[in-house]
Write a protein that binds this DNA or RNA. Structure first.
Lengths: 220, 220
DNA sequence: AGTTTTCCTGATTTGATACTCAAAAATCAG
DNA sequence: CTGATTTTTGAGTATCAAATCAGGAAAACT
């Protein structure tokens, strides 16, 4: 092993491993764990299947390694948000929500992974919460609770905010195939993206109705 | 073949086929197409695997037959809504949205299926849109457009309403495992259900903020 | 009851996929 | 350049799930 110090050109091994992780992340996020095959990843990464097992023992470990590629995304979100540490909770929350949505768009893999595994449940979801999503979720819940205490947010279980937010992101990111199939609309355009971000945020924050009347109860 | 008229006790065959469809719908909605095995369905339905292939040729056809079990749910929604045919579009839309959410709760399979396949895309999603969801989606879009024309709804692509609504339902139904894993909250209780329905509907219709100030733009 | 038809099953085939391993090829240190 | 080390691979194994089929059980019919 090379003993030269921290800044080194990546060795051959680490370069192919990185390529594999990249391909794997893409496929896992678009197809979900089960529909991805080692063969498919190997082909897309232009290596043999055995190489996958050399660098990452098995499919599960490859999945985890691929997920960790997303750590940087979460960290960046954290960094941007910490700049507003001293703002009132409601302002931080708004910023956090917008950041959440923006990041969901810029890195669709993250949102898709959470939605896919969030529906399936199981060990992989637990792993995600423990290694990737935990701090982010706790921070959002915490902000929501503080904003609620300050009277700036309607009272509801603050954990719901995160799920609702995730679901809102899912609506336009993860359900893109649904939009295409059902309505022939392609949300993967820059114009579409901006419009949809505003729509979701507007919906969550201000609602969609032009007037302010109450929701009818007659159908309960 | 029995020639006796319309009202007959179901023959043995149709009874087991119904049992199989029921089990299949449950498993498909909870696990998604790939994670469900014919063996698993057979075991749960207490028949042999070969019986599945006798009644439904292959896994795809079984899936479709199971999905058609949900037609009744959609029809019931249609029936309830058509009673309000003469109300103003915005009132119909509100009713439709509440119905949509209520039905998502009462029949979680429907919402889960749409979310699961809506993320995956592909032939099964197209089939769902064509055979199950098409009319419902078109009706919602139509109502949204009319409400918009009447000035009762903020302007946005009306198709987004359906996806947003679906996503809202997904947030509490489909992402139940996420809620459990991330927050230790179980949304599968009657109290939880009612609270969540109100939350989503409030969010979509009126927004979550207690005040009415604008969304900040600084993070754009 | 006897006969025909429908229904169900065990055993098997076929196909796909994760994973292993010995050996070849590429890379690197001195 | 040379030998040691890392990396890659082709070929193969084991496992699991879908689909088939011929024969037998059950149901329906007369």
């Amino acid at each position: 092993m090379s003993k030269s110090a921290t800044v080194v050109a990546l060795g051959k091994g680490e370069r192919t491993a990185a390529k594999i992780r990249e391909v794997a992340l893409d496929q896992f996020s678009r197809l979900g764990f089960e529909r991805v095959t080692m063969g498919g990843i190997a082909a897309a990464a232009e290596v043999s299947q055995a190489t996958l097992h050399y660098h990452f023992q098995d499919k599960d470990q490859l999945w985890r390694s691929a997920m960790l590629e997303l750590s940087a995304v979460i960290s960046e979100e954290e960094r941007l948000l910490s700049a507003a540490r001293d703002a009132p909770p409601i302002a931080q929350l708004r910023m956090a929500m917008r950041l959440f949505l923006q990041i969901s768009w810029r890195h669709p893999a993250l949102g898709r992974i959470v939605a896919l595994e969030g529906m399936a449940g199981g060990e992989r979801l637990d792993w995600l919460n423990q290694h990737l999503l935990g701090p982010r979720n706790r921070r959002l819940v915490d902000l929501a609770r503080k904003a609620m205490d300050a009277g700036d947010l309607k009272p509801f279980p603050p954990e719901m905010l995160v799920v609702t937010l995730q679901a809102g992101a899912a609506g336009v990111i993860n359900l893109a195939p649904l939009m295409r199939s059902a309505f022939g609309i392609d949300p993967d355009t820059e114009a579409g993206r901006a419009a949809h971000e505003d729509l979701i945020l507007n919906a969550l924050v201000q609602g969609l109705l032009a007037d302010r009347s109450e929701i009818p109860e007659e159908t309960r």
